[in-house]
């Protein structure tokens, strides 16, 4: 049968296993825990400062939390982690974010 596990102290082993489980199953968010995901980017969002109305919608929608928005101020993008998904450009009500090909 290939059974190589015979519990000796099921109570103790159960609790120990649950500790390992929560350590391995659960992950705490932290900046850069998956490396610099900015390298995944094909297109880069660029904020057109003159057109931006500082509404913060891009900040709200960014799925990776890479846009910083000082309240009613000008947003800025953290290019270390921005994957270039383009959601910000898509939701911007005044088309103040353009997507440019990386390397251009």
């Amino acid at each position: 049968m290939g059974i190589v596990y015979k519990p000796i102290d099921p109570e103790k082993e159960g609790i120990e296993d649950l500790e390992i489980l929560s350590e391995k199953l659960l992950s705490k968010p932290s900046p850069g825990s998956a490396g610099k995901t900015g390298t995944w980017r094909l297109y880069k969002p660029r904020i057109l400062v003159d057109k931006c109305i500082k509404c913060g919608i891009c900040w709200l929608y960014c799925p990776e939390d890479t846009i910083a928005w000082p309240y009613r101020g000008l947003p800025s993008i953290n290019y270390d982690y921005c994957k270039g998904c383009g959601i910000c450009a898509n939701v911007c009500p005044v088309n103040a974010i353009e997507m440019i090909l990386e390397g251009e």
């Binding site: 596990y5 519990p7 082993e13 296993d17 391995k24 659960l26 992950s27």
Partner: peptide, 25 residues
């Protein structure tokens, strides 16, 4: 915290092993 986020291969195997142990208990 995130439950079951993308993990290394070893974690996939370890979680399976833990479930198997629990089933034995």
């Amino acid at each position: 915290f995130a439950v079951g986020n993308t993990g290394p291969d070893e974690v996939t195997m370890e979680l399976k092993w833990l479930a198997w142990r629990a089933m034995e208990r």
